[in-house]
Design a protein around this nucleic acid. Structure first.
Length: 283
DNA sequence: ATGGGGGCCTGCCGGC
DNA sequence: TGCCGGCAGGCCCCCA
């Protein structure tokens, strides 16, 4: 799924057609995704104006003029596609409904936002805007990696004493928000740190070095419109292209691209997920 | 408290 | 062609 750069890309695509606009009609085609939708979700969305579209970690938050906030998570395979946009920046005609179109928002400006999610690991909920941060799913999430609270002293302290592999630690949303399998692999490659190394065992200076690297990888990916492997699309249906910049992810058996390194990218399984790394230069 | 594994779903790809 | 196993960008929950 969408990790932070993909979610941010979707948010940026939706903002021009949603912010300040009224949801003329919300259509909800099933009772749940990963969890049941909140009661009367369609009714609570219909007629509401979207005041702001925000992102927290991998969640999109749409603040409504009713004092409620629509929380959206794309799970592994969720897409939000825009059609019928009066600005002419998106597919103009509404395409035929497709399998797994679970929620459709028709905006008063003519734009239609379709949430499609084959695997249904995504989620939607409605929460009070004033206390949104306290929502069960948001309360435990760590600092935004592109924000000021994610800094060298913080990460050093957060990894200190951790007996888990650094790969697992960086995937832990309580430590840092928004990283997923791809960007952890890429950040560790750039930092030349093995995903197998115990988090608490890495020298503080090397841990600190990961902070600007994580920021840089995410910033580059956002700039590229995210990574498209199988399902990810931007809100306008276009592909992201950061996948062409991967040094590690998905490159098993291919030569390491680190300067002067003669290694080959390997794939191992950690906590049930693939880790791609160069055993020669990542230590 | 921390770490590891199962499970939730569907779709796709490669091998036979 | 068809079937089957394996795999997939996430994350909650249970167990040791």
């Amino acid at each position: 799924m969408p990790e932070l750069p993909e979610v941010e890309t979707v948010r940026r695509g939706l903002a021009p057609v949603m912010e300040g606009q009224v949801i003329a009609q919300a259509q909800v085609n099933r009772p749940d995704l990963r969890w049941p939708f909140p009661p009367l979700m369609a009714e609570r969305l219909t007629g509401r104006r979207v005041m702001a579209l925000r992102r927290r970690s991998k969640y999109i938050l749409a603040d409504l003029d009713s004092g409620e906030t629509l929380l959206i998570h794309l799970g592994m395979s969720g897409r939000m596609l825009v059609s019928g946009d009066p600005l002419g920046r998106f597919v103009h005609d509404h395409p035929a409904a497709e399998k797994h179109d679970h929620v459709v928002l028709d905006m008063a400006n003519g734009a239609r936002i379709t949430f499609n999610d084959p695997r249904r690991f995504g989620a939607m909920d409605l929460l009070d805007t004033a206390t949104a941060e306290n929502h069960k799913l948001l309360a435990v999430i760590g600092p935004e990696p592109l924000g000021n609270d994610f800094n060298e002293p913080y990460l050093v302290a957060a990894l200190k004493g951790r007996n888990t592999p650094v790969k697992s630690a960086l995937l832990d949303q309580r430590i840092v928000a928004g990283l997923g399998n791809i960007y952890v692999c890429e950040a560790l490659f750039r930092a030349r740190i093995s995903p197998r190394r115990k988090a608490g065992q890495i020298a503080a200076a090397r841990v600190a070095g990961m902070v600007p690297i994580i920021r840089q990888v995410l910033a580059e990916a956002i700039e590229a419109g995210g990574s498209s492997l199988r399902d990810f699309r931007q809100a306008d249906g276009e592909l992201g292209y950061f996948q062409h910049s991967f040094d590690a992810y998905g490159r098993e058996g291919e030569p390491c691209r680190a300067a002067g390194c003669t290694g080959t990218i390997a794939r191992i399984v950690q906590a049930g997920r693939s880790s791609f790394y160069c055993p020669l230069c990542q230590r």
